[in-house]
């Protein structure tokens, strides 16, 4: 601190207590304090234990609301990006999508996106760490760590997508045969909405949907893949 000599005594003592003074200046001040009872008294008047403050404030973080503005903004971009990507990569496939399957139902779009996945899509690259799971958990305001540890599935990554104004979270896995499996989650906005398990084939993929405790959940597996409903029931049991 270059202007330390011009500091008010209290400001100087605060910098000393905070360990913000350069070592040579701290040493000089320490010597001065040792010989000056008035400085000792002043230092004592400022020397309060604030070590508990940060942990107290850290404890508030789990109560923090979701950054809704982020979900809204990124949803538009991601939906747009998804449209562009699908148009470029799946032009032919999209032509074949039936009118009833056109966007309007996020589950159809999520299934069409999953259609792009191959074993190599998920087998390559690093496995998502806790950071990715923590990030999507925070986004949906729910601890989703159990979705990274599902028996029989090799968890590969958790990523944030978007549908219109909402954040859409996707957990991606490979099953024992190396087939891509996905669990997609989106907030319903109403914790009271609960539905049973709805099986449907979407774009030749097996899907099961249910809603519980404020979340819509879509489980997607390969065509004819068994156990998708059991997987959905297992996930629902954890909510």
């Amino acid at each position: 601190m270059s202007n330390v000599d011009h500091m008010a005594p209290d400001a100087l003592l605060v910098a000393f207590l905070d360990g913000a003074l350069p070592e040579d200046q701290a040493r000089a001040l320490r010597a001065e304090i040792a010989e000056d009872p008035a400085l000792q008294a002043r230092l004592s008047a400022l020397d309060v234990d604030l070590s508990g403050l940060r942990p107290d404030m850290d404890a508030l973080v789990p109560n923090a609301p979701l950054p809704a503005v982020l979900a809204r903004g990124s949803a538009v971009q991601l939906a747009a990006a998804a449209v562009v990507a699908l148009a470029l990569l799946l032009g032919g496939v999209l032509i074949g999508i039936r009118a009833a399957d056109r966007p309007g139902d996020w589950r159809d779009f999520a299934a069409a996106y999953h259609l792009l996945y191959r074993t190599e899509t998920l087998a390559s690259g690093e496995i998502a760490g806790d950071g990715g799971v923590a990030r999507v958990s925070y986004l949906l305001g729910r601890d989703l760590s159990s979705l990274a540890q599902i028996d029989g599935l090799d968890f590969r990554r958790a990523q944030i997508l978007g549908w219109e104004d909402q954040a859409l979270v996707q957990f991606a896995y490979l099953d024992a045969q190396g087939r891509p499996v996905a669990v997609c989650l989106m907030a319903t906005g109403d914790a009271n909405i609960a539905t049973g398990f709805e099986q449907a084939e979407r774009h030749r993929l097996s899907t099961v949907t249910f809603a519980d405790d404020g979340l819509q959940v879509l489980v997607i597996g390969a065509e004819g893949m068994g156990g998708i409903e059991a997987l959905a029931e297992g996930i629902a049991a954890q909510f």
């Binding site: 209290d10 400001a11 605060v14 910098a15 309060v48 234990d49």
Partner: peptide, 23 residues
């Protein structure tokens, strides 16, 4: 920056009155 340090000093003094010193 001096204002920040003065505010911290005033805050520390007031907190010390209320909470007491370090053990």
């Amino acid at each position: 920056i001096g204002t920040i340090m003065s505010r911290l000093a005033a805050a520390r003094a007031r907190l010390k009155e209320r909470l007491g010193g370090r053990e």
